[in-house]
Design a protein around this nucleic acid. Structure first.
Length: 496
RNA sequence: GCGGCUGUGGUCUAGUUGGCUAAGACUCAAGCUUCCCAAGCUUGCAUCCCGGGUUCAAAUCCCGGCAGCCGCACCA
């Protein structure tokens, strides 16, 4: 079995994630999370919110609809541009992107062309199928958005949103007023987005329905330069692994070596890097920031870095998060189409804020944790940051007699009011450790005869397999210290 | 979407020139045992992707669908 199949099998067996509607054969690009996967995902989202909303008191969380009206997505450009023009060969059935065919022939970008322009250009160039030399059928527009009919008449058209960002832009004005005419510096949302991929593969990595965690930062470059410069200057001591266009290799560089980029961008770039290094505890050798070249990035993005992780299960570097400087494109577009003012007053007159967007694929991040954490060395275990693990701890009786199960149950119930805990008495003690190892439970506590006599209990750590003995009355404090990183397990071992 | 390969208990697999009650390992559950890392014993649950066809008889052959893998294409 490949790494990917091995991991997918564990995910199904233990209750993390699997294909949606699988009793009917499933659907390509749709996945459901089981009880453990859901806990893991909830913990990730909490960690994300704590970290990014904690960056500034003026960063806020919103919750916006999955369905958006036609006009909103027309204004954002998605109705016209979030699509491919597909051309099919009438002989062999191969399909191609119209703009790519034209680009290959002419060497010039054809991405801007609409259906009619592509059609006439194709006729002009007299192109034929690169695969078999056959003639092409008429080009068709394939929009990647899921189209919906709203209400009973069928003529009110909407879409499932292709990105959560639009929900934020649409609410900018309202939030501005609700915050008593103070510009929301950051508006975040975690929610579903939908893209009708032609042929999704790679499991959780490319789905048709997926979850995004996005933080949109609003600012007026002239008015807020100082604000971000201060934030950046306070923290600019950091080395990051970066790959920029034209560089052969990923290099470890000091953030100050990129000071040709603006502070608002560098500040968030550092924060993103720290999130993966410190919160998700991904080894730095598996993280890099990659800047996209002009050809790769969308036309409205002025600066675009992706955070990439090396996935063993997918055989390469893959994007899990992007940082995009979208300029004032989004708010300007909505201002134009809606007729609503999206500008804020500054010393320099009214200005439409610019946006820098932090866009995380939640499911991709979950897969990153699974990919990087799942180990099959001398045991099968899942190495997770303790705070993200589905269960924080488990409590067992060493044997099933002499009152040990009852005592362990008592301790479990007490701890379970404060942490996500698991209790198990079936099988042998080794089996119970093994079960928790596989789902990444960081701490296992075993009630033995000494517990009955002295009220102490063993705490075993997943990574080392080592144990410490602590007083039952101190358990909560010890777990809390371990979770919050106030004290390491090694430090407790030395004291022991 | 195209081409090739594939789909068997919860998981992984055997069985596929049509033919006996579809087999094994692990898992899981109940119990026994067990003084710390998947031990052992007993008992038990559960399967041929879906639909149609051929046939006395289909997990096996044929058709359609769905899904997965590989390659192509695609991934604003």
């Amino acid at each position: 079995m490949s790494d990917k199949e091995d991991l997918e099998s564990m995910c199904k067996r233990r209750g993390f994630v699997w294909q949606s509607a699988e009793i009917y054969g499933g659907g390509s690009g749709f996945y459901d999370y089981g009880h453990l996967g859901t806990k893991l995902k909830e913990n990730w989202k909490k960690a994300w919110k704590d970290f990014f909303l904690g960056l500034d008191e003026n960063y806020h969380l919103l919750d916006t609809t999955n369905i958006l009206p036609y006009k909103a997505l027309e204004a954002s450009g998605h109705v016209d541009h979030f699509s491919d023009i597909l051309i099919k060969c009438e002989r062999c059935g191969s399909s191609y992107r119209g703009d790519h065919l034209i680009e290959d022939e002419t060497g010039e970008s054809a991405e801007w062309m609409d259906l009619e322009e592509i059609k006439s250009k194709l006729g002009e160039l007299k192109l034929q199928c690169p695969n078999c030399g056959g003639d092409f059928m008429d080009p068709e527009n394939f929009n990647m958005m899921f189209k919906l009919e709203i209400g009973p008449t069928g003529d009110n058209i909407g879409f499932l949103r292709p990105e959560t960002a639009q929900g934020i832009y649409l609410n900018f004005n309202r939030e501005y007023r609700a915050l008593r005419k103070r510009m929301p510096m950051g508006l975040a949302t975690i929610g579903r987005a939908y893209r009708n991929e032609i042929s999704p593969r790679q499991g959780l990595f490319r789905q048709r329905e997926f979850e995004q965690a996005e933080l949109q930062i609003f600012f007026v470059p002239s008015a807020h330069k100082k604000f971000f410069k201060e934030k950046y200057d306070n923290e600019k001591k950091i080395y990051m692994r970066v790959k920029r266009p034209g560089w052969e290799e990923t290099k470890e560089i000091d953030v100050t070596e990129m000071e040709n980029l603006p502070e608002f961008f560098l500040y968030h770039l550092m924060k993103i890097y720290q999130f993966y290094r410190d919160i998700m505890e991904i080894k730095e050798e598996n993280i890099r920031l990659r800047e996209l070249s002009d050809e790769e990035k969308a036309f409205y993005n002025k600066i675009h870095f992706d955070l990439e992780i090396y996935f063993d299960t997918l055989g390469g570097w893959k994007e899990v998060d992007g940082l995009h400087y979208r300029s004032d494109y989004d708010l300007k577009k909505h201002q134009e189409r809606s007729g609503q003012k999206m500008s804020i007053p500054t010393d320099d007159g009214r200005k439409v804020p610019h946006v820098v967007e932090l866009s995380f694929g939640v499911d991709r991040n979950i897969w990153a944790l699974l990919d990087k954490g799942y180990k099959t060395d001398d045991r099968n275990w899942f190495d997770l940051p303790p705070k993200l693990a589905p269960y924080t701890g488990a409590v067992f009786p060493l044997v099933r007699k002499d009152g040990l199960p009852e005592k362990s149950r008592e301790i479990f119930e007490d701890l379970n009011e404060h942490f996500d805990m698991f209790w198990d008495k079936s099988g042998s003690i080794g089996k119970r450790y093994a079960r928790q190892d596989e789902i990444g439970t960081p701490y296992c506590m075993t009630v033995d005869y000494d517990t009955l006599e002295e009220n102490t209990i063993t705490v075993r750590e997943i990574r080392s397999g080592e144990q410490i003995r602590v007083e039952v009355k101190d358990l909560k404090k010890v777990l809390k210290n371990l979770l919050e990183g106030k004290k390491t397990f090694e430090e407790y071992m030395k004291e022991d």
